[in-house]
Amino acid sequence: MSESIMINIEKLNKSFGDLHVLKDIDFTVKESDVVCLIGASGSGKSTLLRCLNFLELKDSGTITLEGEVIEKDSHDLNEIRQRVGMVFQHFHLFPHKTVIQNIMEAPMQVKKISKKEAEEQALVLLDKVGLSDKKDVYPSKLSGGQKQRVAIARALAMKPDVMLFDEPTSALDPELVGEVLATMKELAEEGMTMIVVTHEMGFAREVADWAVYMHDGKIVEVGHPEELFNHPKEERTKSFLDSVL
């Protein structure tokens, strides 16, 4: 595994009004790492993820992406977001476009690649997520698991360097969780750098290189999943794990 640093965060702070959501977060992700963020709702996991994609803008601190300190004044955030893919809890597929159009949209509109090239790429991605037969249907005809796999393919179409997953299986019926996790696991095995906010401890255990426990806007504990789950060092981590496992 390469040791180069993909994302480095120092002293990141973010507030919504009076609510201090992220407090002095320090956090490093190396290339090809799979990091699972766990913690109770309201602990700031999703906000942290959204700051990495600049959907939320930080109040203070530095975010370094592939060795480059990113600031909204000096960088085109649209360009940065192309390098950081995002998968949402509620998929947010474009309902007025077919599955393949969903995937082709950004590469054609943003990267200006030809329709033919975009289509070829999209077909490869659909094959990868196992949905080639659904290419011409509208998202409303898909199950939740299929929608999320299309959303993953859509994000991958921009050839991002990092993929962020914001509770990708939380909105799914239990029997559909497996197919999405399998897709994500495959992606991890190909060496994609991934940061995953999840409640799926099994996935974290099996796939993640690191598990990060967050509480009340702070990172409480970081460790290899087995270690963190079996021998948490902090009392807070222990009580959280007791409540979810």
Partner: peptide, 29 residues
Amino acid sequence: ESGQMEAGRSLGMSAGLTMRRIILPQASR
């Protein structure tokens, strides 16, 4: 829903492009 704008932005589309390609076609309907 605001997720449509976020989805567009997360793919590197600008706010204007997302408005034109994603939001307005749905809103016109």
